[in-house]
Design a protein around this nucleic acid. Structure first.
Length: 874
RNA sequence: GCCCAGGUGGCGAAACUGGUAGACGCAAGGGACUUAAAAUCCCUCGGACCUUGCGGUCCGUGCGGGUUCGAUUCCCGCCCUGGGCACCA
């Protein structure tokens, strides 16, 4: 195979030098194309995918953690005999490239490609087992051509359409602001109050797939329950009642949707969005209302902003009739009702909805109780709404009906009047994919005065994004480039105008996982190789993507399925959502109240005699800095730790080991320089231990028939470690406890001093197990130690070792004895001792006797292999 | 505001299906080696108390209740921290 033993000749007997070692081993992988994935129908495939990075400049610790998790899984599965594919690529379109362009006057394309080059080098230095032949970048026309193609197909099928929707508009910079660019209601660069502005934009009908997206969650056994719950809530399917409130002047009706039809008789007013047509019409001769609408037009569009606003409203003066009683009810314009959401109107029941209650109290609107606990008293609503379900009261002929029956009852009654109907509703809204941005995939549509909207024909795709553009932050550059937007109509050949908006970047990241199967296919979006590799067997990424990215990707998969491009319902069989990487923050208060943040690497931490942080000083000037808590690594708090500096100092294996050891993958990981040192110390210790053993030459195989009890103990320790680590890695993805098990074994082995050949044989076996188990986590040092232990070839091609059940057997075990659930003693019993013997031994234990003496034993519990509990009375 | 998580020694964590709370590591303290330092190795390490010692007792998993022979684990209520909220990715 490969001539791998050449480098160990140079490294054995020496101290551990990760930098040279890692480079040499990476070169061997490279030259042997060790991680190239080839379709092979005869082998079980394993597609391991980590969420691809946005090429922001350099890797951050979140990437390192994400990709190490993926790499450990990929390497482990390879040792399990699977045909593993682990690709990597670049989520290359996005806002930061435009911001960098404005700041540095560099074209986003150039900036992005430079970042990709640098970050690729970083990924290589970390030793990840990627098949680089499958690399892709979403800003490549060869890639985005196919999503343009799919979009035109969606349009033909009626799944893509245009409608008006609201954006945050910066009146100074004359551009649309992303939610994160709106700070306290103002544009981040201009500082001008944002304006809500309606734009004609493209939408994709994800709501047509809402039921599938909801129902198929039940098939995703390999997904965290938490993520499935979030998606279910996000889709928010409900069965309720759509109710019409006729306008008092009979000119029109106002429709609302409710999931609480049981409270219909308690409606005391109706609330509409400030920009609802009714509200706008009423404002024409109502200056107070007009002022309110104008005020609301400066509220940012994000739900988090709208939902935390102080609830405000104005009476529109319009009256509607209650659909059952005919009673006149006021219509209020309220800032918490959203126009783009349902019908833009809600019925308000202050007695049974807390938000309505607060609004009613504020404006002196009536509160009418219509629900009480079944068989109970009228609830007190003087301090807040009664939101439980129950039975109807004060509802005339409907009194006594249960909340659960109300939907059917009112659907029938209102149905007969033509004023209501049962309806399934979703919280999920259609996916708005238009962005008024430059650095994105052009939406492949053409507007012709005579033919209307015309999709770009397949033979004209891709619509290429001009790459030599430096945006200046004022408006969309494409809309100012006639050479881009001036075109001819594909239908009539007349003068026409191209769409200048680009896709939401979630569009690219919604199908990249499939394209990795066949990145070189230039005749189609996907080919049969996708059927071999899909679905992804293990997907790994941050919990922050639990809803949007993962929902869009699931949706895209179903779209591609319905176009015959893939043949499964779901893209990701197993999902691991990793926690954040956090670190200490340090700051100094400036005179103006702002804070200057200092990187933890520049701070000397001061601790008390217990080791608690009491303060810190800046290394450069020796002056104190304040401790700001432990937070997510970020630019704004300047607490990012540069992975490259760590790799340069300790080597990739140490960084990988620490990130896997410090916490289980799903939890947040607190960075600790001291912890990294500890991981490095451990690798050094293991290195010396193996070298010391190897200096005497490798040992023969263990003679299992002639083991001393000490040798048996050592073998048991080794195989118990293997059993534990295999379970932790394969079944739980808890790499921290697998590493702890190896550390424990290495501690035991360090204390063992071999006296004879059989001792050395047992030690050799244990060392091999330790090295094999560590190899997915710290692959470079594992390769070197594997050779030191006398093996040729690559450790990545070794099968995962088997637990020797024989080695785990014991003659006697220790049981814990409790009295009334409190630990009182320990007993040694033979493994096969029966219950009577165990209980006798437990009662005879001296300390236990102190607690049962003179008392009546009322119950005796024996948990096999674990404990005895004696329950006494008196 | 709404949805989803999390909270255990000085710190990161472990306890897998309700069964020994704190494995493993870090920090700290003590010792060995060294002319010295670094590195390395050994010991101690949740709190309070009892005991010459061996060892033992009580308390302790955010807070308050509950279920159970037994609760970090299950149930109810609360507090705090984090993630997401549709144009950051």
């Amino acid at each position: 195979m490969c001539n791998c033993d050449f480098f160990i000749m140079g490294f054995s007997m020496q101290e551990y030098q990760p930098q040279t070692l890692e480079k040499a081993i990476q070169q061997v992988w490279n030259e042997n194309r060790t991680f190239k994935a080839v379709e092979d129908p005869d082998r079980e495939k394993f597609y391991c995918l980590s969420m691809f990075p946005y090429p922001s400049g350099k890797l951050h610790m979140g990437h390192v953690r994400n990709y190490t998790i993926g790499d450990v899984i990929a390497r482990f599965q390879r040792m399990q005999g699977k045909n593993v594919m682990q690709p990597m690529g670049w989520d290359a379109f996005g806002l930061p490239a435009e911001n960098a362009a404005i700041q540095n006057k560099v074209a986003p394309a150039q900036w992005t490609r430079q970042n990709i080059d640098y970050m690729k080098g970083q990924l290589k230095s970390l030793g990840f087992a990627y098949d680089w032949d499958r690399e892709l970048a979403t800003c490549d026309p060869d890639y985005y051509k196919w999503e343009q193609w799919l979009f035109t197909k969606l349009y033909e099928k009626g799944l893509a359409y245009r409608k008006k929707s609201v954006v945050n508009w910066d009146p100074v910079d004359q551009c649309v602001l992303a939610n994160e660019q709106v700070i306290d209601g103002k544009g981040w660069r201009s500082g001008a109050p944002v304006q809500r502005r309606e734009l004609e934009q493209w939408f994709v009908k994800i709501t047509d797939y809402a039921d599938q997206l909801l129902d198929d969650l039940d098939k995703l056994d390999g997904w965290p329950e938490q993520v499935k719950t979030m998606q279910r809530n996000w889709i928010g399917r409900s069965v309720g009642l759509e109710i019409d409130f006729p306008l008092a002047d009979e000119t029109d009706r106002l429709s609302v949707y409710t999931t609480r039809p049981d409270t219909l008789m308690g409606v005391t007013y109706v609330a509409v969005a400030p920009d609802h047509p009714l509200s706008k019409r009423a404002a024409e001769n109502n200056p107070e209302l007009a002022a309110f609408i104008e005020k609301c037009a400066h509220i940012a569009t994000s739900e988090a902003v709208v939902e935390t606003l102080e609830k405000e409203g104005v009476d529109t003066g319009i009256r509607v009739r209650h659909p059952i009683t005919g009673e006149q009810l006021p219509v209020w314009a309220a800032n918490f009702v959203l126009m783009g959401y349902g019908t833009g109107a809600v019925m308000s029941v202050p007695a049974h909805d807390q938000r309505d209650w607060e609004f009613a109290k504020k404006y002196g609107l009536p509160i009418k109780v219509v629900i009480k606990p079944v068989g109970g008293e009228l609830p007190d609503v003087s301090e807040g709404a009664y939101t439980e379900k129950g039975e109807l009261v004060n509802s005339g002929e409907f009194d006594g009906i249960r909340s659960e029956q109300a939907l059917e009852v009112f659907a029938k009654v209102l149905g007969e009047k033509g004023l209501g109907r049962k309806q399934v509703n979703y919280r999920l809204r259609d996916w708005g994919v238009s962005r008024q941005r430059y650095w994105g995939c052009p939406i492949p549509m053409i507007y012709c005065d005579s033919c209307g909207v015309v999709p770009v024909p397949e033979e004209d795709l891709p619509v290429r994004l001009p790459e030599d553009v430096v945006p200046d932050g004022a408006g969309s550059p494409l809309a100012k480039m006639p050479e881009f937007y001036e075109t001819t109509c594909p239908k009539c050949g007349g003068k026409a105008r191209r769409e200048t908006d680009t896709f939401d970047t979630f569009f690219e990241s919604s199908w990249y996982y499939a394209r990795y199967a066949c990145p070189d296919q230039d005749k189609a979006m996907l080919d049969e190789r996708a059927d071999y590799w899909l679905p992804v067997d293990q997907y790994i990424g941050g919990i922050e993507h639990a809803i949007l990215h993962l929902l869009y990707a699931r949706f895209f998969h179903k779209l591609m399925r319905d176009f015959g491009l893939v043949h499964s319902d779901e893209p990701f069989a197993n999902l691991l959502t990793q926690g954040m990487v956090i670190a200490e923050t340090w700051y100094r208060q400036n005179p103006d109240g702002s804070k200057t943040w200092y990187n933890p690497a520049d701070v000397e931490v001061q601790r008390d005699d217990k080791g608690r942080i009491v303060g810190g000083v800046l290394k450069s000037d020796g002056q104190p800095v304040e401790f700001g808590g432990i937070e997510k690594m970020s630019k704004s708090k300047n607490n990012g730790v540069d992975p490259q500096a760590m790799v340069d100092k300790y080597g990739a294996d140490t960084v990988r080991l620490f990130t896997m050891f410090a916490a289980p993958p799903t939890q947040s990981l607190e960075w600790s320089d001291a912890g990294v040192e500890g991981a490095h110390r451990f690798l050094n210790r293991l290195w010396r231990l193996v070298q010391r053993h190897a200096e005497e030459g490798t040992a023969a195989a263990v003679d299992k028939a002639a083991l001393t009890s000490e040798q048996k103990d050592l073998r048991r320790a080794a195989h118990e470690m293997l059993k534990q680590a295999t379970h932790d890695i394969r079944d739980r993805l808890h790499f921290n406890t697998a590493i702890a098990a190896v550390m424990s074994l290495v501690n035991t082995l360090s204390r063992f001093e071999p006296q004879n050949d059989q001792d050395r044989a047992v030690l050799q076996e244990a060392l091999e197990l330790a090295v094999l188990v560590l190899s997915p986590i710290t692959p470079h040092i594992a390769q070197a130690l594997w050779e030191a232990l006398g093996h040729e070839g690559l450790i990545v091609d070794q099968p995962w070792p088997q637990v020797d059940e024989e080695a785990l057997k014991q003659d006697a075990i220790e049981l814990v004895v409790q009295v009334n659930g409190k630990l009182r003693g320990r007993i040694q019993v033979p493994v096969d001792a029966d219950k009577t013997a165990i209980l006798a031994a437990a009662r005879a234990e001296p300390n236990v006797q102190k607690f049962i003496e003179g008392k009546e034993i009322v119950k005796e519990i024996v948990v096999p292999g674990r404990l005895v509990n004696l329950v006494v009375k008196g």
